[in-house]
């Protein structure tokens, strides 16, 4: 439990360690894309780190990274084939950002820092915590960006081909809400992520003294 909390708050990969920025910015214009990306990363992280931890004594040190990347890429391919088959529109929306999870620094850094040294049980908990932390962070950013930029929350749209029904909520009444278009664009992604990290700092970073500036 402590390790999972650690992954979500103290070592949140996105908001504290600042890893895995590319997908966090690219796919968070929509709540659904954000959580699907988060869950994909969670699955890939947990399964590849378990395999790496199991093989940690067999993999020679000098080819470490290459072997890790091959293992990770296997699971990435698995996920993208699944999405392509069952939710093609989602696969379209995530585009190249799903395949480049292969070189995602969250997964690779956990493999190097934890899975290459620790027992399977510990690796599993760590990966679960980190993966959940990343997923929550993506969901938060996705939610903010979709509500402000589009006035909707998409819970099921792309995966409606699997679940059978669509869920898209309108947040504010249309006539008195003007969506901020720039939030949906790249610039909005950078700015919202910056603000969320600053907010997270102000809540959780205890060592930062009450600010003298501002």
């Amino acid at each position: 439990m402590k390790m999972i909390k650690n992954g979500i708050i103290n070592e949140n990969p996105l908001l504290v360690l600042l890893l895995g920025l590319c997908p966090a910015l690219a796919v968070t214009n929509n709540f659904e894309n954000a959580y699907i990306m988060g869950l994909s990363l969670l699955f890939i992280l947990v399964s590849s780190n378990i395999i790496i931890s199991l093989l940690r004594k067999t993999i020679p040190d000098n080819v470490q990274i290459v072997v890790y990347v091959v293992i990770i890429s296997t699971f990435v391919t698995l996920i993208s084939l699944l999405l392509k088959e069952y939710a093609p529109s989602l696969n379209q929306a995530l585009g190249i950002y799903l395949p480049i999870l292969t070189v995602n620094c969250v997964i690779l850094s956990r493999a190097l820092a934890v899975a290459s040294k620790e027992k399977v049980s510990k690796t599993f908990l760590d990966a679960l915590g980190i993966g959940l932390g990343y997923t929550f962070a993506l969901m938060l950013i996705g939610l903010i960006r979709e509500v402000l930029g589009n006035n909707t929350i998409t819970i099921m749209d792309g995966i409606s081909s699997v679940t059978g029904y669509r869920m898209i909520y309108h947040v504010f009444p249309d006539n008195n809400f003007i969506p901020m278009n720039f939030i949906k664009e790249p610039s909005g992604a950078f700015i919202i992520l910056g603000l969320v990290i600053a907010l997270f700092n102000s809540i959780y970073k205890k060592e930062v003294k009450p600010n003298e500036s501002n």
Binding site: A189, G194, I197, N201, N211
Partner: peptide, 25 residues
């Protein structure tokens, strides 16, 4: 420059990048 504490480091960098992205957009 004098940046509010919570914004130091990455947050301000990201916001700067956001403004650059607006320009490039």
């Amino acid at each position: 420059s004098n940046i509010p504490n919570n914004f130091k480091g990455t947050p301000i960098a990201l916001i700067t990048a956001g403004i650059m992205a607006l320009l490039f957009g």
